[in-house]
Amino acid sequence: MPPIDRSRGRNVHIYDANDPATVLGGLILAKGVTNTNFYSMVEMLFIFTGTFFLRDEGNTKIEKDDRPLQPGEYSIVAADPFNVHNEPWLARTISHATGSRTQAFCDAVRSRDRRCVISGTEAVGADAGVWSGFETAHIFPLAYEGHWNTHNYGRWITIPPADPTKGSINSVQNGLFLEATIHQLFDSYAFSVNPDDNYKIVFFSFDPRNLSGKHLDQRFLNDPQRPVDQLLRWHFRQAVLANMRGAGEPIFEHDFPPGSDTVDDILRGPKAAERMEFELFGRLGTQVELFPTAGGDGVSA
């Protein structure tokens, strides 16, 4: 089955003012995205060596303010040449934290949150140990632990796992408790949380639950074990790159009907090697060397 096209349904399009025929990127506009937010996203997508501003299709300069971004075509007017950012995007499929290595991680995240931190839906069976309909999510995926170690992302962790041999990537600070369907959207970068805008939930795709534009609640933010901002920032940046750069990255099919040749479907699709390694990790729990390992993390400490 072909991957889902992220650019389908875009109603915001980005151009270089000097090349109005070439689309550089775009966005499916959701509630809560402001002009200031849009500027910050553009700065993640492109490398500027000088000043720039955005102009709408009516040739009006867009100010950095809290007005809602409007659908339309936007041109980048830059004092100097600029380039599309080549920061790697880490291919990711729907994942589940399973096995003895992640059990303590799941327990810690469940104990901390006891509800979906995005929708607010309570796990009413928590006291009875019933967590049906909910899942624990790694913000930075466990399958990329090699990348985590290479770039020393563990430097952001202040609460290590109870068993240090499980790796800092399994810290409660790298986890969120989510409804199962919301977990799938999080893993596919359909939405993210922007810690630099009061922890706003931002959808980059269609928002079936009307969650975009809302903010994480203060009860969650006041918890000393909550996720560190650097990891939320990393995920948000990955979501911007996945959804807004060029035509966007593929969204991989994960619901294969019985009898499907899953391996063949993966190998004939985009980013086959990365996806196959990710799928093998998810099924076997075997650490493999997923790429890319080169390039910066794009996130300041």
Rank of each mutant, 00 (worst) to 15 (best):
I266F: 12
L24C: 15
S95A: 15
E145W: 02
V228H: 07
R233G: 04
P258V: 12
I47Q: 05
F177P: 00
S95Q: 13
H151S: 04
A301R: 14
A126F: 12
F256W: 15
N83K: 04
G72N: 02
Y15P: 06
P292R: 00
G154V: 04
A78T: 13
A273G: 02
V288Y: 01
K271Q: 10
F186T: 08
L69I: 02
D255K: 07
L69A: 03
P88G: 10
R112T: 14
N11A: 08
D264M: 13
S119F: 02
D107G: 09
I139R: 03
V172S: 00
F140E: 05
P224V: 11
V263I: 13
D66W: 01
G32N: 08
D217K: 11
A247L: 14
R101Y: 03
A190S: 12
A123N: 09
G295A: 03
S300G: 14
R114F: 02
V12F: 03
H151D: 06
E274T: 11
T22K: 01
M276S: 15
H147V: 08
S132Y: 00
G58Y: 06
G246L: 05
V130I: 08
K214S: 15
P250V: 08
L280R: 04
S119I: 03
F48A: 13
T98E: 04
A273K: 05
T93G: 15
G32R: 02
G213L: 05
D187N: 12
D163Y: 08
R101Q: 09
I94H: 03
T136C: 10
D127Y: 02
G167K: 02
L29A: 12
Y74F: 15
L176R: 10
E145N: 09
G296I: 06
A190W: 06
I159L: 03
E87F: 09
V228M: 04
A128S: 14
N86I: 11
P2V: 07
D56C: 13
G175M: 09
D217G: 07
M44G: 01
F236P: 12
P250F: 06
G9L: 03
E274S: 10
R112G: 14
S75D: 11
K31I: 11
R92W: 08
N222E: 13
R8F: 15
F140G: 06
E73V: 05
L267S: 10
G298V: 13
Q238Y: 08
F206Y: 11
T136E: 05
V33M: 01
S132H: 00
Q238S: 10
F220V: 15
N59I: 09
E277Y: 06
L221P: 04
Y144V: 01
L221K: 01
A126E: 09
V172Y: 00
R233H: 11
L185F: 12
R237Y: 06
T121I: 12
F206H: 05
D265A: 06
N86L: 04
F52D: 14
R245Y: 05
A242M: 07
G298P: 13
A162E: 06
G259K: 02
I47G: 02
R110A: 13
L178G: 07
H254R: 06
V172M: 00
A128F: 15
A128I: 11
H254M: 15
T49I: 03
